[in-house]
Amino acid sequence: VKVFRALYTFEPRTPDELYFEEGDIIYITDMSDTNWWKGTSKGRTGLIPSNYVAEQ
């Protein structure tokens, strides 16, 4: 598990995607895809765009 911080707010387009706000901490559990990672924030899990976060 790696810890990342959201650089921007992300509004999901599908139920599989995770909503998060700029500054949120996201725990990444799967980075197997280059563009979409699986992450958890505020008790919810979903896909996030990798270019919206920076490693802490």
Rank of each mutant, 00 (worst) to 15 (best):
V1L: 13
V1P: 12
K2S: 09
V3G: 07
V3N: 05
V3S: 07
V3I: 14
V3R: 11
V3M: 13
F4L: 05
F4D: 01
R5M: 13
R5N: 05
R5E: 08
R5I: 15
R5H: 10
A6N: 02
A6P: 03
A6M: 01
L7F: 03
Y8H: 11
Y8E: 07
Y8P: 00
Y8V: 09
T9M: 06
T9I: 04
F10H: 13
F10Y: 15
E11T: 14
E11S: 13
E11P: 03
P12S: 07
P12H: 03
R13L: 10
R13F: 07
R13M: 11
T14H: 14
T14P: 01
P15S: 11
P15T: 10
D16L: 13
D16T: 09
D16F: 13
E17T: 04
E17L: 08
E17Y: 12
L18M: 11
L18A: 02
L18V: 05
L18P: 01
Y19I: 03
Y19A: 14
E21M: 09
E22P: 06
G23E: 03
G23W: 05
D24N: 03
D24T: 04
D24G: 02
D24W: 14
I25Q: 05
I25T: 10
I25S: 04
I26A: 00
I26F: 02
Y27G: 03
Y27C: 14
Y27A: 06
Y27W: 10
Y27R: 06
I28A: 02
I28F: 01
I28V: 14
T29R: 05
T29C: 13
T29I: 14
D30G: 06
M31V: 06
M31R: 08
M31Y: 07
M31C: 12
M31K: 06
S32A: 10
S32R: 11
S32C: 10
S32L: 10
D33A: 06
D33R: 06
D33P: 04
D33M: 06
T34F: 10
T34Y: 09
N35Q: 14
N35F: 15
N35A: 12
W36T: 04
W36S: 02
W36G: 01
W37K: 00
K38P: 04
K38I: 15
K38S: 10
G39P: 00
G39D: 01
G39Y: 01
T40Q: 11
T40V: 12
S41P: 02
K42Y: 08
G43N: 07
G43K: 04
G43E: 05
R44L: 09
R44A: 08
R44G: 08
R44P: 02
T45E: 12
T45H: 12
T45K: 10
G46N: 01
G46E: 00
I48H: 00
P49T: 13
S50N: 06
S50C: 12
N51R: 11
Y52C: 12
V53C: 03
A54E: 14
A54I: 15
A54Q: 13
E55A: 13
E55N: 07
